[in-house]
Design a protein around this nucleic acid. Structure first.
Lengths: 228, 228
DNA sequence: TTTTAAATGAATGCATACACAAATGCATAC
DNA sequence: GTATGCATTTGTGTATGCATTCATTTAAAA
């Protein structure tokens, strides 16, 4: 993940570079929730004029990563717990559909191999208590699910929604007592996918998501996190 | 629906006015699929400089209503049948979740009254063979479902996706042999909602959507519509 | 006549300037 | 000390201008 206007992106427009830089800064928590930066300051930092900054900010606002406040510049949208819940519910709906679509494709082992790898990586990370590695494998699993389901629009939506909740998910990951249940669930879900068992997939996924969401909401309350 | 920079919107920024005007023109088919307009031409037509035009176009591109092609300006994104299918699948996923959420709210008759009105209006439109009225009532039904489910993020997503398929849905509506089955389905779905019967709602909705989507795809093939 | 090269015009991406409005700072009055 | 009014500063929204690039047209060569 680049964190600046990298030299090897010379063919990218300034808007694109600014967009990516700011987006990265948000996802990496360099711009934490509620963080405000004025357009002229962003322009100065990034060495461009305000115009491409504005254009990039409009895109980021459309993706609901920021809001633009007159005279306050850009503000990184903090997720209050309700936001997190609502976005997560939308993710659940779309991922469930993605699972259905994936199954209807009757994928062979070769197609599912990357997901199998991700599941294995999650397992390995569990064994060594490597939270970061587990998060990466988990992220990979979900990205693959969205991209392999054969519906590109769904993929894009999920990508956007997962970006909105990325930071929060990382934080919650660290607060959770243990990941054993989630790890197990995803293995079971994947196994049911391999078996082509639609009803099992649906049941397992719903249980999994319900538990994960309940857990998350309880943690947010327990730690009185106003926003994430 | 305004179709120009209305005089009664004096407090709206130029970007907002341009955005709304162009969006309206797309949804009303005044800018049909594939239609291209250059930025300077849009600016001339709308009586503003290029800057707010560009900013509005960036938003519309983020919503996947248009694409921006260098030296070709803005192009209204046509939906090839695959696009239509994919977006509709995403809509199905989100609407199913919306129904679940709505039911979990245990809404009273007063809350559901606007939906009941829409269902009645659909019935009345059926009786008088008024396609336009039926479409409006149908649109209203879906908008209400999204807005009453208690998940604002879901609502926004559905609003965006429905805008993307709005024009196509209107076209398909005219091509369908009859709407009796859809009308009946929606009545039954709504009745199940009123009864708080989760499983019935889910079953009915899935059947309904599967039939509607199959029909739509068959029509697109029958009429060899390359894009809509 | 056809193909290739050069010229031209125009669209985009971006920088800069301007007008306006809101926020801030300072002075004054109570 | 606090509130109010005014002047100044500053940020946004927008218009305009400039440099670059690309598509089209024109001219030249084969």
């Amino acid at each position: 993940m680049n964190d600046s206007l990298a030299e090897n992106e010379v063919s990218l427009s300034r808007v694109e570079k600014v967009y990516r830089t700011i987006r990265n800064n948000i996802l990496s928590n360099q711009y934490p929730p509620g963080h405000q930066v004025l357009e002229p300051e962003l322009a100065r930092q990034l060495g461009v004029s305000r115009t491409p900054v504005r254009e990039a900010l409009i895109r980021l606002e459309a993706e609901k990563l920021i809001e633009l406040i007159p005279r306050r510049g850009m503000r990184v949208l903090p997720l209050v717990p309700k936001d997190y819940l609502q976005i997560s519910q939308a993710i659940s709906a779309l991922e469930e559909k993605a699972l259905h679509l994936l199954l209807s494709l009757n994928p062979g082992r070769d197609v599912l191999q990357p997901m199998a790898d991700a599941v294995r990586e999650m397992d390995e990370a569990m064994q060594t208590n490597d939270l970061v590695a587990w998060a990466e494998a988990d992220e990979k699993f979900h990205r693959l699910l969205a991209s392999l389901c054969g519906n590109e629009r769904l993929n894009l939506l999920l990508e956007m929604l997962r970006a909105q909740t990325y930071r929060a998910r990382l934080i919650l990951l660290k607060l959770r007592p243990n990941l054993e249940a989630s790890n197990q669930s995803q293995k079971e879900i994947f196994q049911a996918v391999v078996n082509g068992d639609v009803e099992a997939v649906e049941g397992l996924y719903r249980s999994h998501r319900q538990r994960v969401l309940s857990e998350a909401m309880a943690l947010l309350e327990k730690y009185s996190l106003p926003h994430i």
